[in-house]
Amino acid sequence: MAVTVKPQQIALAVSTDPMLPVPYRVLRVRRETSDTFTFEFGSVDGSRFPFAPGQFNMLYLFGVGEVPISISGDPERPEILVHTVRAVGTVTKSLCKLKPGDIIGVRGPFGSSWPVVEAAGDDIVIVAGGVGLAPLRPAIYHILNHRGEYGRVVLLYGARTPGDMLYKKELAEWRGRFDVQVEVTVDAAKPDEWRGNVGVVTTLIPRAHFDPHHVTALVCGPEIMMRFTILELQKRGLRDDQIYISMERNMKCAIGLCGHCQYGPNFICKDGPVFRFDTVKEIFGKREI
């Protein structure tokens, strides 16, 4: 069985000058949606890329710029680095044009991780909205790789439309398993393109099967989606310290020195992006913090 890499060990993997990008080659490209692509990268020098689920990298495109992107691959396959990128800005739009053989620069991995080791023994409920499924996928891989260590496992996923759903093939596979409850919903769909649930992802929470006293919730999506998800989870009886969220802010250095990603007293790049909800509840939801 593969060894779980803890964040403390990962700190050693960061090169001595964490501001220097390391070249990685595009191995494969998969189109997820009209504007979102999943890339598999391999290091140019053949080195492996150990990381913990929930961590992110800074991806540099020669001369264009650099952006923080979550790692979305399997933590137990460190020979392949996987990122899912949505084309929303200058750098991500250029990233989405990458072809196999192209080279990018990678700095990382940075940040905190989903508590997949600590949550062993618990039920797990994963709630994802939109591209928020990408940073959660390494946690899903880990949990499924170690399925016996967890109680009930629930994945709730909401996308805007059926065309905006990520990882459709895998979602279908996971749905086919008897040991995972997978529920998917879309905000809106044309009558003939979707026969599944319609509504926001929070509507799936009341029918998720888990023991509220022994469950860990992993939540990632737009802030508004996370806010209402937390409310629904609280209605189900979860305490704030059972809920984990992943936050997003502007980032330039990813090592807690540039100041951009401050979120109250936290630097999202080093104290986050994954936070236990009770540690940020005083500022979460406050406007323009």
């Binding site: 540099y60 020669f62 001369g63 264009v64 710029g65 650099e66 330039k252 250095c253 020195l257 540039c258 100041g259 951009h260």
Partner: peptide
């Protein structure tokens, strides 16, 4: 005050 940004240029 210590905040910085980075600029990537060619």
């Amino acid at each position: 005050c210590f905040c910085t940004t980075v600029e990537d240029v060619t």
